[in-house]
């Protein structure tokens, strides 16, 4: 329990990471946003049975990971946090779709293939989104969204949700800590205390959110979230986006592993 609490409590780690100063961090937020959106589009556009074509796309997260000097473990942990939902969505496919599909010499059911494809796709998308936040920061990301003329109400919603999640998590952490200190021999929370604990939590979170909102209003908040100015977009920022675009499009149009494979076999012949 303490372990889960720790990882939840570290929710704000992404904000911390976003303050580093690497090549990736220094890129213009708008271009990073566009690159990520392009990446997501390409990933999602692959068909249900394509696996090998997706593989080259792993280059993107790996590159960003290393260039932005992000720690692997905490981010992987966050990806794992969503994996139960993904598995939940995909797990029925192998049962419904039992047609045989030939992959190389092996015979597998198409259901497993789609399951695998869902797994890879969602893994890639979640990773890309996390990388974007960890290398840009939510505030600047919101600024970039506003530059794209996304209505401010949506951007605000996103930002406040993000803020309040950590508020909620901190309340959870505090409440659970208080509970476990007074129930030292228990593993987890006893069933009889769930109701009141959850009720307390909701009330306290409401209260807290209310006060934060009031504090914001007192400092002149009217609904527009000002994040300060942005640097200008440099040629290098555009080149970054364009470079990845080229790669993504190439990966979509050509099955790169197959091309490389046939090149090699061609050379050998």
């Amino acid at each position: 329990m303490a372990n889960i609490m720790n990882s939840l409590y570290n929710m704000r780690l992404l904000d911390d990471l976003a303050r580093q100063e690497t090549i990736i961090h220094k890129l213009h937020p708008l271009m990073k946003l566009l690159t990520t959106v392009s990446f997501l589009t390409v990933v999602v556009s692959f068909g249900r049975y394509e696996i090998s074509g997706l593989l080259p796309l792993f280059v993107y997260p790996v590159m960003v990971f290393s260039l932005a000097e992000l720690p692997l473990k905490p981010i992987l942990l966050r990806i794992l946090l969503v994996s139960p939902f993904i598995i939940g969505i995909g797990i029925l496919n192998p049962f419904f779709d039992q047609q045989i599909y030939r992959l190389g010499g092996m015979e597998i059911s198409r259901g497993w293939l789609t399951f695998l494809s869902i797994l890879i796709k969602s893994g890639l998308t979640v990773t890309a989104a996390l990388l974007l936040i960890a290398s840009t920061g939510m505030d600047r990301l919101a600024g970039a969204l506003r530059m794209l003329k996304i209505p401010r109400i949506f951007v605000l919603q996103l930002l406040l949700t993000y803020r309040y999640i950590s508020v909620l998590m901190e309340e959870v952490a505090r409440t659970l800590r208080a509970y476990s200190l007074r129930a030292p021999n228990q593993k987890g929370v006893h069933r009889s205390a769930w109701g009141s604990l959850a009720g307390q939590l909701i009330l306290r979170t409401f209260d807290r959110a209310q006060r934060i909102y009031e504090a914001m209003c007192l400092r002149g908040f009217t609904g527009e979230y000002e994040t300060g100015g942005f640097k200008e977009i440099r040629v290098w920022d555009i080149a970054y986006w364009a470079g990845w675009m080229l790669f993504f499009v190439a990966a979509r149009l050509y099955n790169i592993p197959m091309v490389i494979g046939s090149l090699i076999t061609g050379v050998i012949r």
């Binding site: 976003a18 303050r19 006060r211 934060i212 504090a215 914001m216 007192l218 400092r219 002149g220 527009e224």
Partner: peptide, 30 residues
Amino acid sequence: RQRLGMVFQDPDDQLFMSTVYDDVAFGPRN
């Protein structure tokens, strides 16, 4: 509200941006 500034009892209620700088800049930017 521009003329009255209030410091809350619990500073955690007041500080919500990701850096101290941005937090202090929040009011003037608004």
